[in-house]
Simulated scan of single mutants.
Amino acid sequence: MSYNDLWIRDLGARYGVALLAILAIVFWMASRWPKMRESWYRDYLIGFEVECSDLAAFHKRRLFEPLHCLISADETLRDVGRIRILEIGVKTGENIAFYPDDCHLVGVDLNKRLADHLFHDENAWRFRHIFVEQTIVGDGSRLGQTIPSGSVDAVVTTRTLCSVESPAAVLREIRRVLVQGGTYFFMEHTPDPRQGTLIRWLQMFWSRSGIWPSLYGGCRPDFDPIPSIEMAGFEQVTWRRAALHGDTSRPHHLALTRHHIIGTAIR
């Protein structure tokens, strides 16, 4: 047996078991990754996103206040003093607390269990003041088969446009389904408005590396929704900036998604 053969045999004897163990771990991780990612994202939604909504309560109350004064374009709803709201990206339903009593909600979310969450989960009592008209699984970019044009009085998105595959397509659908004169209410996080900061660099790195989107439902911290909203063809767009501050269980998440635009767009 040659020296080279002995060297290879010794190398295999020393590291073969370790290599097999590493390969087994890699294959196990690959097979479990979808479930792990789903669990990770669920914990994020019921943890940080709920905390973030609490920090934004003042801004949301102010943003959604006009919903209580809207008069529906739907004659049937108007006669009973109700309106129809479409929310894209319902998540855990934290916005619903700010909606008018007895309003009709059409909810859109990628969560296949959205209907169960709104009707049957232990916290479903929080949504009893509204009527859930329909739930749709998707990101809001293809609603033509389920929501007629000009049938919705108001549309809501909060921290949603960063996660959809095509913000332009979602905004086209928002404009299409709104009644003439209807209002799109939005609160979307933006990149750090200051150029050249460490936060701005981290937002770009985590987004473009694909790591952050893969863990958090497609969210891209470096996505700026302002140009997309302003070019979507609405008659009037008004917005202001706001930054969230406070204690959360994931301060790094807040640091990367602290800055928001809050506003409305009229069809």
Rank of each mutant, 00 (worst) to 15 (best):
T135F: 07
G144W: 13
D79A: 09
L202Y: 00
Q195F: 07
L244N: 04
W7Q: 12
Y184S: 03
L161R: 03
L23A: 06
I199M: 07
V26G: 03
R126Q: 15
R267V: 15
G140K: 04
I226P: 00
E122V: 09
S163Y: 03
A242E: 10
Q236A: 14
I211F: 07
L19E: 08
E65Q: 13
E38A: 10
P66L: 15
E188R: 04
C219F: 03
A73P: 00
H245I: 10
I174P: 01
L86H: 03
G107M: 05
G81P: 10
G12M: 12
Y15C: 01
H252L: 12
V106D: 02
P34N: 09
E51H: 06
H260E: 04
F119A: 11
R241V: 11
D153G: 00
R208P: 02
D153Y: 01
S166A: 08
S141G: 05
R159A: 12
R126F: 12
V156C: 09
L86R: 02
A57M: 12
G107N: 01
C103F: 05
A232D: 05
L198P: 00
R61M: 14
A115I: 10
H260V: 08
R61N: 13
V108C: 08
L63P: 01
S209K: 01
G107I: 08
P191E: 11
T257M: 12
I130D: 00
S209G: 02
V26L: 15
R62G: 06
I262Q: 00
M187E: 06
F223I: 10
F131M: 10
G16Y: 11
I22P: 01
I83P: 00
A168F: 09
D43I: 11
G196P: 04
W212C: 03
T146F: 06
L114D: 02
V50T: 12
C219W: 03
L178V: 08
E133V: 10
T160H: 03
A13W: 01
H189K: 08
S39E: 13
S53A: 13
F205A: 12
D101H: 14
L63M: 06
V50C: 06
L20W: 10
